[in-house]
């Protein structure tokens, strides 16, 4: 497996309903271990679909998705997942949510009746409490239910829940989109810190250029060339680490111009948008 990318997407095509209106067309993307890749694009361009392909909850019409050199047809513990909503189980407390992965992977339903289960559960709870502290929550929050937490706190717990299963890849689907700007900034700092500490590979879906620039080591822009074609990778840039302030406006312009160009041409094919299209860098 030496020299092989951790995630390899080759000519992936996805279509819902009619194959003549694909969502993704011939997407090629390789992601190395330890990268923080932000998938950027307009709403509806197929970012989440691409993420679900990597997750294994969706299969491509054509093409191949390899994770750790293997095709995965189901989601499993190698890939953690943090969606935008419904990321926590409402019937479990914060601590139970975080320990869920450990419990289900080690004990079946009947295994919960064994004395060993209670010993192991205590250990898992200790570990979960350490995660709780790392994500900036208090121990008094441990016994709260998700609906007693704010949106930002819920997403913090969802990240801890995913990380506790120790996946090699963390897939985040617009995970911070529903948060207010200040909480969003805190969450960005948190995920960046956790990424530095764990060197986990992250694939982060967002439609926010700022967010992509402040988080990613690499940004991949998905866009459509025309309305009847599926999205493909239109731009794939590495973000200098650390990113200098003077580089940001130039990168922003470059990233936004790619996705905006496609959005204008998609809206109405009759529109003469030549004057509105910015020059690509």
């Amino acid at each position: 497996m030496i020299g092989m990318p951790l995630i390899s997407i080759d000519n992936a095509c996805v279509a819902y309903g009619s194959a003549s209106r694909p969502v993704l067309s011939d997407v090629d993307l390789q992601i190395e271990e330890g990268e923080f890749v932000c998938l950027l694009g307009q709403t509806g361009c197929g970012k989440s679909t691409l993420l679900r392909l990597v997750l294994g909850s969706e299969q491509p019409l054509r093409g191949r998705i390899l994770v750790e050199g293997r095709e995965h047809r189901q989601p499993d513990r190698t890939r953690g997942y943090v969606p935008q909503k419904y990321s926590l189980f409402p019937d479990r407390t914060v601590l139970e949510n975080i320990t869920f992965g450990g419990e289900v992977s080690e004990f079946s339903i009947f295994g919960q009746l064994m004395p060993r289960y209670y010993r192991r559960r205590r250990e898992l709870r200790e570990e979960a409490l350490s995660y709780l502290r790392r994500i900036g929550l208090r121990e008094s929050d441990a016994e709260k239910y998700p609906d007693q937490l704010s949106g930002g706190m819920q997403q913090r717990v969802a990240i801890a829940q995913a990380l506790m299963a120790k996946p090699r890849i963390l897939l985040m689907d617009e995970a911070f989109s529903a948060l207010d700007p200040s909480t969003r900034k805190d969450m960005q700092q948190l995920i960046r810190k956790l990424w530095c500490e764990t060197s986990i590979t992250v694939l982060f879906v967002t439609h926010n250029t700022h967010e992509a620039l402040s988080l990613g080591t690499r940004i991949v822009v998905l866009a459509k060339e025309s309305i009847d074609q599926g999205s493909r990778v239109m731009l794939d840039v590495s973000v200098p680490q650390p990113c200098q302030d003077e580089e940001i406006p130039q990168l922003m312009l470059r990233l936004e111009s790619v996705s905006r160009t496609r959005a204008i041409t998609d809206e109405d094919p009759r529109t003469d948008c030549s004057s509105a299209v910015p020059e690509l860098a």
Partner: peptide, 8 residues
């Protein structure tokens, strides 16, 4: 999906 990714 989340439960599957946690090993369920």
């Amino acid at each position: 999906v989340k439960a599957f990714t946690l090993g369920a």
